[in-house]
Amino acid sequence: MTGAAPAHTSREADLSRDAGATMPPATPAGGPLLRVDGLSKQFALDDAVLPWAKGRRVQAVDNVSFEIAPGQTLGLVGESGCGKSTLGRLVLRLIEPDAGSVALDGMAVTGAGKRQLKALRRRMQIVFQNPFGSLNARMSVGEAIAEPLLAFGVGSRTERSEAARRLLALVGLDPGHAGRYPHEFSGGQRQRIAIARAIALEPDLVVCDEAVSALDVSVQAQILNLLKDLKARLGMAYLFISHDLAVVRHVSDRVAVMYLGSIVEIAEADRLFADPKHPYTVALLASVPAETPAARKHAAPLEGQVPSPIDLPPGCRFAGRCPRAMPRCHEERPALRAIAPDHKVACHLYA
């Protein structure tokens, strides 16, 4: 971002200095910015609250793998409770994974030491769902936006203040309001402030965790257009988490569909919306209201209940609701495999 912060040395040099160690070489040109391989996470149930749950665990994310290219937006979609937000936090190591690895530009995020992780976090930021909850009510918005710069020792106090004002202007707000507090802004304006804070350090990757779901539809459109404009200007990549298929289609280059902690289909956005393969993806797209009856998509209605993540069934986790399930589906879990260039599906129909 031009002029948002004082000039500094190359990013690799910054990372090496901040980490206090030699950083691994960056990924060759054309490689992925983010690589996630076999990421898994379980949570132990609180037996003080649920005495029957002693020793039981919830499988939140299970063996998830994907890549995001520089400047690309990967939309992550699925029903509430499928593990989308947990996955986003695992990518940033806001919570620790049980298994698997995350690498940013060839540099390991999982397993990185405290100083090295701090250096990597300069390149990874997050926009949370609730902007009011993610902003400190006791800090002016200018202070909140400048806080990442302060944390990494970027610029003087005056330079950080000026950078905050420029960032406010960049996200479409009045720089003169830097001294105001979060409660003085609307929900959409607060989300713009949260976005300004997220891009203050010019990150390569921003995780947007249901970043527009709490906003009115008209405000959603404004924030989505802002995110697309910032991506074009700054070259950032997004992991865009949402349960809203229309929103995901609007912003995404590629889309991953998640069900009960696993990715069941991933493809280019246009291909996935035009020709979904997994029965769950087909059902999701058929559930979206159509503008006209002629445009309505038809799919066999889903029956049965979503399995409990505490006691997952063998085989395909969607088999109990799938209208095309075969005996094999109830016994053997399908692997996520390629059926076309940049199109993978976890379904025995395509084995």
Rank of each mutant, 00 (worst) to 15 (best):
G3W: 07
A5T: 01
S10D: 05
A13H: 02
D18G: 09
A19F: 04
A19R: 05
G30K: 08
G31I: 03
Q42V: 03
L45I: 14
L50T: 12
K54D: 11
R56H: 11
R56Y: 10
D62K: 11
V64I: 14
L74F: 15
T86A: 15
R89L: 13
V91N: 12
D98S: 12
K118E: 00
R123M: 00
Q125A: 09
L135N: 07
L135T: 07
N136G: 05
A137I: 02
V141T: 03
E143C: 00
V154L: 05
G155A: 02
R157Y: 08
T158R: 08
L167T: 02
Y181S: 08
F185C: 01
G187C: 09
G188I: 05
I193E: 13
I195S: 12
I199S: 11
E202F: 00
P203R: 04
V206H: 07
C208F: 11
D209Q: 04
V217P: 11
Q220E: 03
Q220M: 02
A221F: 03
L227E: 02
L230S: 14
K231N: 11
M236H: 13
S252M: 00
A256R: 12
V257Y: 04
V257F: 08
Y259E: 01
A269G: 09
D270H: 07
D270W: 10
R271D: 13
P276H: 13
K277T: 05
L284G: 00
V288H: 10
T292L: 05
A294P: 06
K297G: 02
A299L: 09
P301Y: 14
G304M: 08
G304I: 03
P309S: 04
P309A: 02
P327T: 02
R333L: 09
P341W: 10
A346V: 07
C347R: 08
